[in-house]
């Protein structure tokens, strides 16, 4: 006897939105309003926050915002803690099975490393992995000079780029950031935003929400 007419349909595979970007670039500040937008759209979202230090700060900030957060601390999920990433993702699928999982990578992670780690995920194949890299224009010149492989890798590995802190950056700094993105990853959609005064924020967050909408 089959139960094909009454069986529950299989759950929709989870979608991943990965936030990359150097330390202090503004990832958490962007995730908070994005979470509100996704919740308003009825999209069930869970969060994984990775920090290199032993004591996590960002996960506490996100919990203050009412978010359900899993934390991975004391290392980086793209190299040292790849097993923790896939284990945590499996736990989220089993226990919660949200529509979307947002991963806030550590500031020293590369999208390529995270994608390689996710290759080892043993759960239901993911419906999508969308990666956004947050670029801080106020420090882009120095970071490109001294952290070249990391910063270039974060830009090259992204599906979408958010240039933040537009309220703080000078015109020259913004131009430099835009030039760097155009040189390294000319195909990437680019948004310029300021969380502080919300300039450009709504269309950028809408684009991210659309990228992971079930």
């Amino acid at each position: 006897m089959t139960s094909s007419n009454t069986a529950e349909p299989p759950p929709t595979p989870m979608r991943l939105l990965v936030f990359a970007g150097f330390l202090g670039s503004g990832k958490t500040s962007l995730i908070l309003p994005l979470a509100t937008l996704l919740a308003a759209g009825g999209i069930r979202t869970c969060f994984i926050v990775n920090e290199v230090g032993d004591v996590g700060i960002d996960q506490q900030v996100m919990r203050d915002g009412g978010l359900e957060v899993y934390e991975i601390t004391a290392g980086c999920i793209c190299c040292q803690l790849t097993v923790d990433l896939v284990t945590t993702l499996g736990e989220i699928e089993t226990r919660i099975h949200p529509d979307v999982v947002i991963i806030e990578a550590s500031g020293v992670a590369t999208p390529t490393g995270i994608h390689s780690a996710l290759d080892h995920y043993q759960g239901t194949p993911l419906a999508a992995i969308h990666t956004v890299t947050v670029v801080d224009p106020t420090r882009i010149e120095a970071l490109l000079a001294v952290m070249t492989p990391l910063i270039e890798g974060q830009i090259i590995g992204a599906d979408e780029i958010l240039i933040t802190k537009m309220d703080e950056a000078t015109d020259d700094e913004v131009a430099l950031a835009l030039d760097a993105v155009a040189r390294l990853h000319p195909q990437a959609p680019v948004h310029t935003v300021s969380v502080h005064d919300r300039a450009g924020l709504a269309p950028a967050l809408s684009a991210l929400a659309e990228a992971v909408r079930p």
Binding site: L23, I57, D58, V61, G107, T138, A142
Partner: peptide, 24 residues
């Protein structure tokens, strides 16, 4: 220090919580 990456904090008092961060 050759580069300031991120200096950040989360604080709790009896009146509530807040966070603070510095990138440069």
């Amino acid at each position: 220090a050759s580069l300031i990456g991120h200096v950040k904090a989360h604080a709790r008092t009896a009146q509530g919580s807040f966070h603070c961060n510095l990138a440069s």
